[in-house]
Design a protein around this nucleic acid. Sequence first.
DNA 1: CTGAAAGCGCTTACAG
DNA 2: CTGAAAGCGCTTACAG
Lengths: 340, 340
Amino acid sequence: MSDVSKLAGVSKMTVSRVLADPALVSEETRQKVMKAIEKLGYVPDRIAGSLSSRRTNFITAILPTLTNSNFADSAQGLANALRAADYQLLIGYTMYDLQEEERVIRTMMERRPDAIVVAGTVHTKMASEVLMRAGIPIVEIWDVPEHPIDHAVGFSNYEVGRNAAKYLISLGFKRIGALGSRADGDVKDWRGESRLLGFGAALREAGIADDLIIREGSAPVSYDHGAKTLGSLLAKAPDVEGIFAVSDISAVGALMECHRRGIHVPDQVSILGFGDFDIGRQCYPAISTIRVDAQMIGRKAGELLLSILEAEKGADVPEGARVDVGFELIVRETTKRLGG
Amino acid sequence: MSDVSKLAGVSKMTVSRVLADPALVSEETRQKVMKAIEKLGYVPDRIAGSLSSRRTNFITAILPTLTNSNFADSAQGLANALRAADYQLLIGYTMYDLQEEERVIRTMMERRPDAIVVAGTVHTKMASEVLMRAGIPIVEIWDVPEHPIDHAVGFSNYEVGRNAAKYLISLGFKRIGALGSRADGDVKDWRGESRLLGFGAALREAGIADDLIIREGSAPVSYDHGAKTLGSLLAKAPDVEGIFAVSDISAVGALMECHRRGIHVPDQVSILGFGDFDIGRQCYPAISTIRVDAQMIGRKAGELLLSILEAEKGADVPEGARVDVGFELIVRETTKRLGG
DNA sequence: CTGAAAGCGCTTACAG
DNA sequence: CTGAAAGCGCTTACAG
């Protein structure tokens, strides 16, 4: 930068202004500076700029994994929303492990992000404290808790579970089960667990036994997980009529296992998934599922942050926003009314 | 940090040492410093550290999209390899657009990454120059060109195409086609195009016409793309016997379209995909494909970079490394010998 | 519209 | 094993 200022015959301050807010500089000076920048191939150093201005234009996104198309969609939605405003995403993975999440959050704090987006509303005590004291906007995504740390953009996983149960009940079933992952230990899909909790509650409300909710294996869930948990469920209740899987991935695995065992879906058993993954749409029979607009979650989180970070002084800024993007039941071919 | 040094009654330099290399500090001093850090909840500022040390521990990864499980796997493999060494990934998306790639590369340079990983070996002239002059290690992934900008980790897409053709020829087919995306304009999947080029070359070598290579629509490819290009191919050659799709996604789309048209796969036509996506493995009939270890590409790129960046002074460092991870033909149910 | 001074919070390079 | 000084490359906050 000082090279540029020398070549252009102006002060460093003027070069800085040309880059930050060209309107502040006279047309003539600007031209000189631009020419010098061009000639020297000068690339401004944002690290130095960040240190000086106390703004990094980094936004941290903490996700369980990127190998899940839903979270990848949210990341992409977030990145798209932020791109125009020149923010750079700092992505961290937790592998559904709360200890790892805490570690990632701590590491990320050293990079001084301007805001943090984190998937999930359950954190270690330490992690929650770090986030609360961070002094920057925090957006929890993929759920909408009563009392978010700061902001939240998502939907109620509990209600998803309740709706799943209600739908299966409406189909006339009495023997209803679910396929999920283990709910103990650090590595745990809390959102999936919320769905199972809501599912069980709705079952009980309807006077139906909730003893067929299988929790086996650990997140992230796989096709194999679906196949195995289906086996466990069948061993327990060969007469099960309707099944809710916490993820389409498990649902597809369960469906394939049904094929192998000669159990017809949906004539003998109905299967409902979650997530509306491509594979559920394309497989045969196509999986009935509950859809969430993952990309929209990312986009809305991004827009919320921009409205806060880019607010003019004095403008009023949303406080403790809770955005519920909802969800949608998509009935396809794996669910069917009893005797229908 | 100066708060910490005051509380601990030492200089800032000593605090810095405790954090960077505790072995340099006496046990007693270290304890005092650690206690002060704990008490104040001090979180070191890596932005300042980066400016001072001229190392950011950022590594930039530039990918077409994260919504493709192959690239997501590579990103995760890269992140896993770098995590232990305390590097943070800076991920950028190009949406298969070379102009956008150039823009992303320029923006990323302002963050002063210690190295850059970029998917693909075709760049705008400007982008190539920026990368060459960057003065940091560059790893191009997902192909292995004769002359990489710096390093390369991938496989030969051209050879993938050749092998696809050879395999279909070995099945006894004479009428052989392919499904790809448009090869003109800025938005373009160059790796897919390489596969088609190799495919056509092998066809010609065997004395088979290469006029059934369809290039329609733009990357990223979709199920719909597979269905539509299959339609075009069939319109041109109703008697086509073997088809190679540049991606499993297209292959699945083509397979579904065959179902709809009452064309039996593989009895009437064989379909070979690329990428070994989950969906190809799970759909019925399961897609024959060519598999690449995407996660390994990311991991090897990460390990290569670590060996360079973490090298002791004087240690010899790989120069212009070209790592070919190869690929693997996986025969499943959508390909079958003529009359077999 | 332009500039000189100070400082952001660290690490480098010495010195002892 | 410990510390004082200088500086990384910008922006902030004044001043004119």
